[in-house]
């Protein structure tokens, strides 16, 4: 049995599955880190390390986001399970698009906080991302508010997305969640 890297009309391939779970864990991790680091006191060792890590991981995650959407475009789209109701299919589709959109807006707003004064963002000393937009008045405050509320919305929507998957798994006992783990799932 060979590994299925690409998506098919009924299955998610390994690449899509890995990127899904990698991004899910990273988004949750970044949310927790962001929440925690902004509560730290000035003399905490993590007062500087926390934000550096948060920014660097955020930039890399944006790269993965671009890869994931590109991968999604060049691959087959697994169709929804046959017995799902039309409203469920639509709700899921809208939720998925919103998750992608919210992620993008959270990346952009976060980037605009740290680059508001023209500083670039260092990514683990490997490379740095230069500032692009700096002219908005009190940009760091505005971007900060947007970053916070959209990140909360993203986590809220991800929670609903997760609850829906668990509902299909436990109550409908279908393959919705299973096919997000196993690229070679038997029907």
């Amino acid at each position: 049995m060979s590994l299925r890297w690409f998506n098919t009309a009924s299955h998610y391939g390994l690449v899509a599955i890995i990127m899904h779970w990698l991004m899910a864990m990273t988004v949750i991790g970044l949310f927790a880190l962001g929440w925690w680091m902004t509560e730290l006191t000035y003399y905490d060792v993590w007062y500087r390390r926390g934000p550096e890590l948060h920014k660097a991981i955020g930039i890399i995650l944006f790269g993965v986001w671009v890869l994931r959407l590109s991968w999604r475009q060049i691959n087959a789209k697994p169709s929804p399970l046959a017995h799902h109701k039309p409203w469920e299919i639509w709700a899921a589709k809208i939720a998925h698009l919103l998750l992608y959109l919210l992620m993008l807006l959270v990346f952009v707003s976060g980037y605009m906080i740290s680059t508001a004064d023209g500083r670039s963002i260092e990514v683990f000393g490997l490379f740095s991302v230069p500032a692009f937009v700096t002219a908005i008045e009190n940009q760091e405050d505005l971007a900060g508010d947007i970053h916070f509320y959209l990140a909360c919305s993203l986590i809220g929507l991800a929670l609903i997305h997760g609850i829906a998957a668990i509902k299909h798994h436990l109550f409908d006992q279908d393959n919705t969640l299973r096919r997000m783990f196993n690229p070679n799932l038997k029907d």
């Binding site: 906080i113 740290s114 680059t115 508001a116 004064d117 500083r119 009190n138 760091e140 405050d141 900060g144």
Partner: peptide
């Protein structure tokens, strides 16, 4: 007070 400027956006955000 929002016009505070210490030449560092992240610090200014914190100070505001």
């Amino acid at each position: 007070t929002a016009s505070l400027n210490s030449n560092h956006a992240e610090r200014d955000k914190h100070l505001r």
